[in-house]
Design a binder for these strands. Structure first.
Length: 600
RNA sequence: GCGCCUGUAGCUCAGUGGAUAGAGCACUGCCCUCCGGAGGCAGGGGUCGGGGGUUCGAAUCCCUCCGGGCGCGCCA
């Protein structure tokens, strides 16, 4: 196997050259970073290092900038920088450097992306469907963001394991077991077996909300559910048999929903799979003296000394209590709570996968829960606290700014949501007279890809911690910053390249002449830096923005720089650029979990 | 009450110490004898919630006030 030394991006090349200049001048190279310019009228890249270095050393920024400019000798990459304002250095790269970079990207199977220096083992916990409920719009973000992060980390060279972590072991199971018992007339009723055999997800979706609602104000019913939960976890029959049936029905549907969404997992484990570790974990916590009795439960305290908050009691008085709250490991009923399984799952993962990093892609509202679990895991030595990260995200809201609901006020099932997006995609395609001549099966495939691209791009283009407003009309639009626009641009390039092949027009060496070509190569060049930042910040939206910027810049290039109308070297150069753009666009969208149809 | 998140153009959102705050939608005006116009180019539109402070420099950091969302032990 040939090991290629990947070419550094232009910002990196300029930074290296600038660092050499700073080193020669005796200035700390920590200030030598060169980045894309925010003043394109003055240069393509800039360095603010002279200002920062001036502050640190007490020298004049202008003087440092002038000395650096005078020593600049990176021939071939850029001319010596110009100085502006109090000491900004502005760089304009040479056409040759751009051409070389474009060719390197075009020839690279990774479209110009480098790998992390030290690959790690990373486990990504995302999706998190609940066995008691079908997947709905609320599961969208966990699935889409988690899947994208998994792809991004894997692409950068890490060994990544995606785990769905089904919610199949808590009180929701106890509630369902009691509901089943009531439906058939008791746990030992003859009707149990046939009931379980005929069970569907629809039954489950009808039973669970009813049971959950009843538990709210029927204390006796709630107590029965808690007891049933404890019995299930203790391995009692027929609780276990019922649980198995419920889980099987739910899982089959959820796998289908994930498949429709184009989201996959390496491990399809759930909370129940942590069960074998719980007894041992509790003994370990006990032995370490971390477990305390508290109001009938057994807890691990995780607050540091002095971490307190005031709490109002029912009688109106306030008391000072520790924060975060202790993590409940054993409920007063003797059952496992979600904190118990989460903690045991860390132990399980540490044993089985030895991850360097654990990412939990879960709703931001659970931040405090994870803080408790992570602290407990750190204290118990299951995993270092720094290796555990909660990747929180905001909610999907309706037009009223509140979490998204259907017109009837219920939650929108994932399946229905995808169906609505497909309807919208079909209508858009027909309105644009796209795919009219396709075989029905291909038309449906295109509509599905457009629908998924609409949903995923609209979600991923927002920074994950902010909530966003769900607006299917906007998401499925072919205009502007949307998934369908990106598919359209990509397919248009495919069409162009196919036409070139028909004409036996071959790509060739790149020469960068037109301003639109310069701008395009600069966007291609920015890919690797964007990947690195998206990776560091666990922020796929940076990648979504890059894909959009690339498509948009290609459109400008396409408008200004005819490809097939040219002949010879110019045509060959532009074909290389077009090919590089398509490859990078496919890679970018692929990392977002978005598939591009062959034609549309 | 305490804590976390959040407030940027009419709308949806980027930008978290650097120069003149950006993009999409919407709006106005141009551009199809030309590779897919679902496009491109240009323009109007912002006291970056208010006030104070730190800094050569603040949407970004600190303080304070106002608005919105969420969380605060036996649900997940």
């Amino acid at each position: 196997m040939v090991i290629l030394r990947r070419m550094k991006d232009l910002a990196r090349q300029l930074s290296d050259a600038h660092a050499a200049v700073f080193a020669a001048l005796g200035i700390d190279t920590a200030y030598s970073a060169v980045t894309r310019s925010n003043r394109p009228d003055l240069g393509e890249f800039q360095s603010n290092g002279a200002l920062a270095a001036a502050r640190a050393t007490g020298r004049q920024p202008r003087e440092i900038a002038e000395a650096a400019a005078a020593r600049w000798s990176a021939t071939g990459i850029a001319a010596p920088p110009t100085i502006a304002g109090p000491g900004f250095l502005n760089f304009t790269v040479t056409a040759d450097a751009l051409a070389a970079r474009a060719e390197a990207i075009a020839a690279d199977a990774r479209a110009g992306a480098t790998l992390v220096e030290t690959p790690r083992t990373v486990i990504v916990d995302y999706g998190g469907p609940n066995v008691a409920k079908g997947m709905h719009v609320g599961h969208l973000r966990a699935s889409i963001i988690g899947d994208s992060l998994k792809r991004l980390f894997r692409f950068r060279g890490d060994d990544v394991i995606g785990d769905a972590h089904f919610g199949d072991w808590g009180l929701q199971m106890g509630l369902l077991i009691v509901a089943v018992a009531d439906a058939v007339g008791g746990l030992d009723a003859a009707g149990l077996e046939p009931f379980l055999a005929a069970l569907t997800l629809a039954d489950l979706e009808a039973m669970y909300p009813a049971a959950a609602a009843r538990a709210k104000d029927d204390a006796a019913f709630r107590q029965r559910a808690r007891e049933a939960t404890a019995a299930l976890q203790a391995g009692t029959e027929p609780h276990r048999k019922i649980w198995r049936a419920l889980r099987d029905v739910s899982l089959a549907t959820q796998k289908r929903d994930f498949a429709a969404l184009g989201v996959d997992f390496d491990l399809w484990l759930g909370e129940s799979d942590a069960e074998p570790y719980i007894r041992e974990m509790i003994a370990d916590l006990e032995q370490q003296g971390l477990l305390e009795d508290s109001e009938g439960a057994r807890v691990v305290r995780v607050a540091e000394p002095g971490e307190t908050r005031r709490k109002k009691l029912p009688d109106g008085s306030t008391i000072e209590i520790e924060t975060p709250n202790p993590l409940i490991v054993v409920s007063s009923e003797g059952s496992s709570m979600y904190g118990t399984t989460d903690l045991a799952t860390i132990l399980q993962r540490a044993r089985n996968n030895e991850p360097d990093l654990y990412l939990y892609v879960v709703d931001q509202r659970q931040a405090e829960h994870f803080e408790q679990v992570f602290r407990a895991a750190g204290r118990a030595g299951f995993a270092p606290r720094e290796a555990l990260e909660h990747i929180g995200f905001g909610t999907v809201n309706g037009a009223d700014g509140k979490p998204f609901k259907t017109r009837a006020g219920g939650v929108l099932k994932l399946q229905d949501l995808i169906g609505q997006a497909e309807d919208a995609a079909r209508a858009r395609l027909r309105a644009a007279e796209l795919g009219a001549s396709f075989p029905p099966q291909e038309f449906e495939d295109v509509a599905h890809k457009v629908a998924i691209a609409s949903i995923k791009f609209a979600d991923l283009v927002n920074y994950r911690s902010t909530s966003y407003v769900f607006d299917l009309d906007r998401f499925t639009s072919f205009e502007g910053r949307s998934g369908p626009y990106l598919l359209y641009q990509a397919v248009r390039i495919k069409s162009l390249l196919a036409k070139a092949r028909e004409q036996h027009a071959e790509p060739g060496p790149v020469s960068v002449e037109h301003a639109a070509e310069r701008a395009l190569v600069l966007v291609l060049d920015a890919f690797d830096g964007t990947l690195a930042r998206a990776y560091d910040k666990r922020a796929p939206h940076l990648l979504a923005e890059h894909a959009y910027a690339l498509a948009q810049q290609f459109s400008a290039f396409y408008e200004n720089c005819p490809v097939l109308a040219e002949r010879g070297a110019a045509r060959a150069s532009r074909l290389t650029l077009a090919g590089a753009v398509l490859a990078q666009l496919e890679t970018s969208l692929g990392l977002l979990g978005i598939e591009i149809p062959e034609r549309m």
